[in-house]
Computed example of a mutant assay.
Amino acid sequence: MKLVVLTMCLVALVLAEEKYQEVENNFDISELLENDRLLVSYVKCLLNKGPCTPEVKKIKEKLPEVLETHCAKCTDKQKQIGKVMAQQVKKTHPELWQQLKALYDPQGKYQQAFQDYFSA
C-alpha cells in the first residue's frame, strides 16, 4: 500500500539527482481530488489498464525505487500530495485501491510502513 501512496505522491514529479523534482510548481491537488474521472484515469494508468500522461508514466517508472527507499527522495510537499491522494483513492474507490495493492505490494511487505505513513 505504501507504494500506492508514494506513487500517487509522485503524480506531478520526476526524478532529480538528490530529490524528485516537481513537474509543475503550481500543482493543484484539489483539481485532481475534485475530478473523479481524472483521478480514476491516473489510477488506471498505474494499473496498466489505461493510457498514461507523461507525468504519470514517469511516476510509474519510479515506483519500485520509491517503495524501496520509503520515498527518501520525495519532498515534504510530494509526500503530502501522495498521502492525500492515496487516502482519496482508498476512500472513494476501494476496488481500485485493492488492485493497486495487489499489483505493487503483492506480498504485503510495505503494509506496516504504509500504515505508519497514514498515521503520521
Rank of each mutant, 00 (worst) to 15 (best):
G108E: 08
C52A: 04
M1H: 09
D76F: 02
P51N: 11
E34N: 15
V5Q: 11
A120D: 11
M85Y: 07
C71I: 01
K19R: 10
E65S: 12
D116T: 06
L103Y: 13
V11A: 14
M1R: 07
L38Q: 12
V40Y: 07
M85S: 10
K58T: 06
L39H: 06
F27K: 09
A12Y: 13
L63I: 13
P94K: 05
P94E: 03
L6N: 00
P94N: 09
S41C: 02
S30R: 08
I81K: 01
V11W: 09
P94Y: 03
V43C: 08
E24R: 11
P106R: 09
Q111K: 07
C9F: 14
E34W: 00
C71D: 09
Q99L: 07
E95H: 13
H93T: 03
P106V: 07
C52W: 06
L6P: 00
M8R: 01
A102R: 03
E68D: 15
P51S: 11
C74A: 10
L103D: 04
L13E: 14
T75G: 02
F114R: 08
L39R: 11
A86K: 01
N48I: 00
L67E: 12
A12T: 07
I81Y: 15
L10V: 02
S41N: 08
P106G: 11
V23Y: 04
W97A: 09
A113D: 09
V5K: 04
T69N: 10
C71N: 13
L47P: 02
Q115V: 08
E61D: 08
G82Y: 04
K90I: 01
Q111E: 10
D36L: 08
F118V: 12
K2W: 11
G108H: 12
I81L: 13
V23I: 15
F27N: 13
Q98P: 00
Y110R: 02
E22F: 01
V56G: 03
V66G: 06
V23P: 00
T7N: 12
E68K: 15
A113W: 14
Q80C: 06
T69P: 03
K44N: 11
E95N: 12
Q112A: 15
G50T: 08
T7A: 09
K79Y: 02
Y42R: 10
L32D: 04
K62F: 04
P51G: 04
P64T: 14
K44T: 03
E22W: 05
Q21M: 10
K77C: 01
K2Y: 15
E34S: 14
C52Q: 09
L15D: 12
E34H: 07
T69L: 03
C74G: 09
H93W: 06
Q115T: 12
